[in-house]
Design a protein around this nucleic acid. Structure first.
Lengths: 129, 129, 129, 129
DNA sequence: GTGGTCTAGACCACG
DNA sequence: GTGGTCTAGACCACA
């Protein structure tokens, strides 16, 4: 996996280490990262995104505690063989809070569902920077 | 406005005061709360949701500083006359971060856009508890 | 719970934060810390043992992730209600690795079991500093 | 000495090289390895346990520096003649940290000393895999 | 008052 | 080369 695939937003309210952990967790759950795949080294991610190595390490450690990643001593982190295989239910569960938040906000703002869905579709399909 | 309309989730990662402020901000932007409308008292909200009154007060103060609410001495908080009128662009801007987060997560999880849109539509239209 | 009950050995091979986490985990499993009991604040433990607050915080965070502790916002950490009640099997499981290591080392050193048991009994019953 | 006598646990928290060094140190102190006895080659140990040869070499080098092992050119490592003869005090000293850790953990878990001693006795006497 | 996050930098452990 | 641990210190978020 390439370190540049991670998207870090320093000004977001979500802490950096949780942004990283969340992305990797979803990439594993979605099957874009498979058991055995190597992750970019702590120093590589930290250097590329100009953040502290400890911040990256914290994300990795948390995922290791969850069983998502495995630490190969002296070699780095890989996706664990024991990581749950992509399971549709689990994937929906991971996105559910965000879905819920969006729906609630749309109701509060009285934004028409039709327009919201159109915007979301466009946002999903657009090319990434 | 009735205090019970606020939805507070103590275990969510989003801080309580920001949950409260965000909801009120969106209800005003969406037109469900109009200039002059009274807000429930700090005590009422705090008592109903079993949270610290200071937390509610902090949300109100922040909205007052933004010009969304007005503190009427002896009468409590009301929606300010100077609050920006419901503006479609502003409303979309308020929901944009959530929209963006959802789209990104869906891509990472490789969830089909079609299913996501269907779920969102259902979630928006369902009755609230 | 009193911060002075924690025993920190800076020169042990086991990292400080894991020493702390392990002790609390065992005190909860053994019933000496019960659900709802408050833990000493990060700053208190750090100050008393002359270690960095972050080190203590790391132990607490890990136990929170395990479900042993609960973070009461603005009030500190308490033993979680959902923490497993003292279970004899679980307690033996927690001590099993140490038991195993001791037995193996005794065999390698060809130390007589009788003497080892006598020493252990004495060590368990002796007064603590 | 046969390489298969070494017990290596890759997932234990104790580093591999220290597992190896500790075992050999204890076998020498206990008299199961005597001065002049040959040790299995680095390659043999590494191959059998599927670990990095450098890890084995590091353990050997450390023991050589301690005076426990001697590097005979062309013949491999042997137990040094100058290795301290089995001394009862030294043997107890080697096991003391483990004894201490076990006692402390038992107290924290409030496990009865009687049961602990019984389990330990059973564990010492049982056959090894 | 509480805990959380992040940084910069040092040093260690491991392969 | 890899990750881990710890520190000192700054600043934030929350109640």
């Amino acid at each position: 996996m390439d370190a540049s695939l991670l998207s870090i937003q320093p000004n977001a309210p979500e802490p950096l280490y949780r942004q990283i952990a969340g992305q990797i967790r979803r990439l594993v759950a979605g099957g874009q990262l498979r058991p055995g795949d190597a992750l970019p080294s702590v120093r590589e991610v930290a250097g590329l995104h100009a953040i502290n190595p400890m911040t990256v390490s914290r994300a990795y450690s948390q995922l290791e505690a969850e069983g998502v990643l495995l630490r190969l001593r002296g070699k780095g982190m890989v996706v664990a063989d024991t990581a749950a295989p992509p399971d549709l239910g689990a994937r929906w569960a991971l996105i559910d809070p965000a879905l819920d938040a969006l729906a609630r906000q749309a109701r509060e703002l009285e934004l028409p569902a039709e327009d919201l869905l159109a915007r979301l579709q466009h946002r999903i399909q657009e090319e990434l920077p």
